[in-house]
């Protein structure tokens, strides 16, 4: 855990959680989805959150992004504590500082690719930065597809449109929830490559939830989650390293009696 808690010295944290807890239900049916999570996500990095089903990785992302409220603790985007914001401030945050990429793309079927990409600006009533739009669409290879409706695009193309939509307002951080979950391998690779390029070449910060080790290996860093707690951290991950990290978690699940000696997968795992 200690590594996960340590701020990356090279980068200021773009997103952070402090003692973040989320409890569903009450009484006997209580489920602790997040249990005192402390984590920093560095600016200009591509971070993957991984963990077995029910580990709370999606909940962590929702709370960090202000899509869901926390039971206790705080989540920060930059200097803003999102856990205390009201709906209008959250909307504002989502408009200007956060972008989302969804597993099922969630494009609006009645609008063209271009209209979909520009939707956040449209909603915020902002001017379009044409140069940025052209850069994005060129990088994503969407220049020829802008007038198409989502139904006329392949899954990979739809997801690239969704990525462009997430990036159009130049947000501080982009949250991606299983962005390759509905894509075939080739399209998935395409999308992941682009996510990595957008971090390296366009200077974005991306936090991605995934359960696919191959997808996670595109990230600069993997944060492992189990039972609502941070369970490990892998820097510069490879698929194998991620797999073994996950295996370690699974063993932990199988042998709950070994609490206290949580396996620690360090970032030194060879790439």
């Amino acid at each position: 855990m200690h590594n996960a808690n340590q701020p990356h010295l090279a980068h200021r944290p773009a997103v952070a959680a402090r003692s973040l807890s989320k409890v569903y239900g009450s009484g006997e049916g209580t489920v602790k989805a997040l249990d005192g999570v402390d984590v920093d996500f560095a600016e200009g990095q591509f971070t993957a959150i991984m963990g077995p089903s029910g580990s709370g990785k999606s909940t962590l992302m929702h709370v960090l992004a202000g899509l869901d409220n926390a039971t206790s603790g705080s989540a920060f985007i930059g200097q803003t504590e999102v856990t205390t914001l009201k709906d209008n401030a959250l909307t504002d945050l989502r408009r200007h500082r956060i972008g989302f990429v969804f597993q099922s793309f969630n494009l609006l079927p009645m609008f063209t690719a271009e209209q979909n990409i520009l939707m956040p600006l449209d909603l915020a009533g902002q001017k379009v930065d044409r140069a940025w739009f052209d850069t994005l669409t060129a990088t994503l290879g969407l220049t020829d597809r802008l007038s198409h409706l989502p139904s006329q695009l392949s899954g990979g193309q739809q997801q690239r449109v969704a990525i462009a939509r997430a990036l159009i307002s130049k947000p501080e951080v982009v949250f991606a929830d299983e962005p390759t979950g509905n894509l075939d391998t080739r399209s998935g690779v395409e999308v992941l490559s682009f996510l990595r390029r957008s971090v390296r070449e366009l200077g974005r910060t991306i936090i991605m939830v995934t359960h696919d080790p191959a997808a996670a290996s595109y990230a600069d860093r993997v944060v492992l989650l189990a039972d609502g707690k941070i369970a490990g951290n892998i820097d510069q991950p490879t698929p194998d390293a991620v797999l073994s990290g996950l295996d370690a978690l699974r063993n932990l699940d199988d042998v709950p009696t070994t609490t206290g000696s949580q396996p620690h997968v360090s970032g030194e795992v060879a790439r």
Binding site: T91, F100, N106, L108
Partner: peptide, 16 residues
């Protein structure tokens, strides 16, 4: 339902 939620996620306010 999902579409409205998507729109909310990309910046549609309740009022909008």
């Amino acid at each position: 339902r999902r579409e409205s939620a998507t729109l909310r996620a990309v910046g549609l306010s309740r009022r909008q």
